[in-house]
Write a protein that binds this DNA or RNA. Structure first.
Ligand SMILES: [Mn+2]
Ligand SMILES: [Mn+2]
Ligand SMILES: [Zn+2]
Ligand SMILES: [Zn+2]
Lengths: 130, 130
DNA sequence: TTATCAATTGCAACATTGTTGCGTTTAATT
DNA sequence: AATTAAACGCAACAATGTTGCAATTGATAA
């Protein structure tokens, strides 16, 4: 395994994640960093953070991709088997760490990863739409 | 609701879905149609077919998007609550119509759609990798 | 059958997202 | 301080999806 370094850009990206309660897209991170680094660098940092199991990737039905910190006590290798919620109104995506789907797979499949994303209205938007 | 028409292109796209046992990407459909119509047209046909609940969209963890026919007896409005499997080796995506996740949501969320995609090795690839 | 007209299409142009190659910079170690 | 591989910036590219608009066409009614 390659040695990984702590750079200014990586630290800044991590701070952005720290401050955010919801998942973030590459573009959102780039805007918050305010040209601290190139957008390609952010893609590469995200790749590294995923490999280090510090963040995980969330792929939404509408095609958008976001990233969120793993805020559970995490072992080195773990499956992100919790659900994510994507609000159709405010477009925020949040980890639902406590929502874990149970399901029965047919034989002869080897499951390595799961992506369970629900979409609809989040509590905020549900209340304001009375 | 707007009236929808049966055009040559739409019929051709439906035939492609009919023949395929796995989900198809926009690009795969375009190649199979062999320049019968423009690629923009295919995007628009896919949009219409989704609105008509004839096909459904599958968004994978790696960012790829595919489409598959609804082959259950379908009511006008229905949730596609079955799982999809994405093979990391052959990249085929199949509907697992019988795999439906059960889960418990916190209150105050309104769920309209779910996207449940599992990835790993499909039976074919699992066997050949002994 | 023919006229009508909104739905559909083709085309060009554009936007967004993600990737790659390469020369330069820099974090970590000696 | 010297070393060196990891990380970076930049430019160029690829893939995917969207939009506006004029031309075409499917479905309907005359
Ligand atoms: Mn996690
Ligand atoms: Mn269906
Ligand atoms: Zn919301
Ligand atoms: Zn396979």
């Amino acid at each position: 395994m390659k040695a990984t370094r702590n750079t200014a850009a990586k630290t800044a990206v991590l701070e952005v994640f720290e401050k955010s309660k919801t998942a973030l897209s590459h573009t959102e991170i780039h805007k918050q960093l305010n040209d601290l680094c190139d957008r390609v660098t952010i893609y590469r940092i995200l790749d590294r953070l995923i490999n280090e199991d510090v963040i995980h990737k969330i792929s939404n039905l509408d095609g958008t991709v976001k990233y969120a910190k793993c805020n559970h006590a995490h072992q080195r290798v773990h499956i992100h088997n919790h659900a994510h919620f994507s609000c159709e109104n405010c477009h925020e995506i949040t980890c639902l760490e406590n929502v874990k789907p149970s399901y029965i797979m047919p034989h002869n499949y080897k499951v390595n990863e799961i992506n369970f994303t629900l979409s609809g209205l989040c509590p905020n938007c549900l209340n304001s739409n009375i």
